[in-house]
Amino acid sequence: MSSLWLWAAALFYSLGLAFALLTVVQQRQTWFRLAMSGIGLGFLFHFVSLVERGITAGHFPVTNISEATSLFAFLITAGFLLAHRRYHMTSFTVFALPVVFVMTLAAAASQHPSPTVAPILKSGWVPLHVSATLVGYAALLLACLAGVMYLIQERELKRKDPHAFYYRLPPLETIDRLGSQALAIGFPFITVGMSVGLLGAMASWEAGWVQDPKVAISALLWVIYLLLILSRVRAGWRGHKAALSAILGLAMALVSWGANYLSTHHAFLGH
């Protein structure tokens, strides 16, 4: 089992997070290069761990919770790095990295040898379904974090008595743009992911899949995702409402993730 690479990734993420905290709390830009190096190295090791896991297993490594969590954390980091390239928000690191670090750590700690993998998980469509959906979730998570940052900064500005956050968080409009872009990128992925899942399920589970609670919740989640985007584009929801709804959307996604445990077909190993 290829645990070492993932542990190394977690270690570098934690270093990156520590330096990012120093940068933001102390407002000393000199630390930030170290923070980004830590995150970059963590990302690299994370990638290596995914590749190695895939080679050892002989298929795309999303056959259990640990692997899915690892891939999810990897995608969040990728999204974070993209956002950083575009917006250079030092403080965003402090919001995104803890999530990445905790997930990577959890994935590393819960690694165990895959028992016999259910044959359905090896079929071609499942990796596509899982990874595209995870990209959608990762984008939603980043939008939610942006929403949290927005609400904090908005509160500082409405209260008119600047405190620590006022000096450290980016401007409202920038945060808002980040959130809306994350959703715009995530939506096509989640649409593709869910359509593939739907088609695949129709082909292979025969009947029965319709009663799977996960399917119903996912359908609801997709509708919410769509509403998040439509409310921005059509109704001109911005700022406060958009931030709140992104947070709500993520809450729904967590419910959907939790539904994996209720579902017969999404329990990774099958029953």
């Binding site: 407002q27 900064q153 500005l157 006022y166 000096y167 980016p170 401007p171 409202l172 409009e173």
Partner: peptide, 19 residues
């Protein structure tokens, strides 16, 4: 780093809102 006159504070706040 931060504005210490009323008119500059207004500009700084505008930046915190609009980027």
């Amino acid at each position: 780093a931060s504005a210490v006159s009323v008119s500059y504070a207004a500009v700084e706040l505008a930046r915190k809102i609009f980027g």
